[in-house]
Design a protein around this nucleic acid. Structure first.
Length: 272
DNA sequence: AGCGGAACCTGTCGGC
DNA sequence: TGCCGACAGGTTCCGC
């Protein structure tokens, strides 16, 4: 489900709901998300700790706990968090309940059971986080960084943008939208971009992500915010999911192709 | 280095 | 109505 803007939205909203709350107990209804961590160890590592705040790195959500521990969560396709009053019984997609010290419950839901939750003592202990590349909205993500990074690879642009070890946080929706906004062919090799193209890609990446965060992300089927509201960026999508519809700029039908087993949407006329 | 394919798991949708 | 395959916003592993 969620890419950078959706995870950023969830982190911000969780801050309003769970900051300062202590985790009093944990109930696990289905342990897939814990990977090789034993449920008892997982609970023991979290119980009694206070949630100081939530942040995001790439598509990972990070709960900063006190005394120091970190809960590193990846929502994959269908993971969600909700904060609710106590329930009698878990709903079908409820995987874990974190009982908080104000009586409410932080619920982790995940229909497809792809999501992951890991507890680490230090952020540098997380193998997942250590593999991530540049944060696209950070000050370090400059045009010259992007130029050098692109020059090192002949991978087609769209798969390049989705490679989390290069830039962290872009998925299938935003990669397509960014390339449309930049007017770039998703199939062209990363190292084939000239200076002006790199500049357009850099600007489009930051502009699209900032706007998507402003709109609280994209809800296509099941993304929900912590309060169950939908994101609103889907109203601003130009190409994603719009195969056959006219390009907003030139009216050429939007094309759909497969790249690395994922759909790519683009305008064959505007993107070269 | 980089690609295709499969795997993780569940639901939905379109075609026949 | 029912069955079957394709597909879904992600990541990782394996083999070539």
């Amino acid at each position: 489900m969620p890419e950078l803007p959706e995870v950023e939205t969830i982190a911000r909203e969780l801050n309003g709901h769970v900051t300062g709350r202590r985790i009093e107990a944990i109930e696990i209804f289905r342990a897939d998300a814990l990977g090789r961590q034993a449920p008892a160890d997982f609970c023991r590592a979290l119980r009694g700790r206070e949630i100081r705040h939530c942040s995001r790195r790439g598509k990972y959500l990070i709960f900063h706990l006190h005394p120091e521990r970190y809960l590193v969560v990846h929502l994959r396709m269908t993971g969600k968090f909700a904060v609710t009053a106590p329930l009698e019984a878990p709903l079908r997609d409820h995987r874990l309940w974190f009982h908080l010290d104000d009586g409410r419950v932080l619920v982790f839901q995940d229909l497809r059971c792809f999501g992951t939750l890991d507890v680490v003592a230090r952020l540098s202990d997380s193998p997942a986080l250590s593999k991530l590349g540049m944060e696209p909205l950070s000050p370090q993500c400059t045009q010259s960084w992007l130029r050098r990074a692109l020059a090192a690879s002949r991978t087609p642009l769209k798969p390049w943008l989705m490679d989390q070890t290069k830039i962290a946080g872009l998925g299938n929706i935003y990669a397509s939208e960014i390339l449309y906004a930049a007017g770039l062919d998703p199939t062209q090799p990363a190292n084939g971009l000239d200076g002006p193209s790199v500049a357009r890609l850099h600007r489009a990446t930051r502009r699209i992500l900032r706007k998507a965060i402003l709109k609280s992300g994209t809800t296509i089927s099941d993304f929900r915010r912590v309060d169950q509201k939908t994101g609103e960026f889907q109203h601003f999508l130009r190409v994603y999911g719009k195969a056959g519809e006219p390009c907003p700029k030139c009216k050429t039908p939007i094309a759909a192709i497969r790249q690395q087993q994922r759909s790519t949407f683009y305008c064959p006329r505007c993107q070269r």
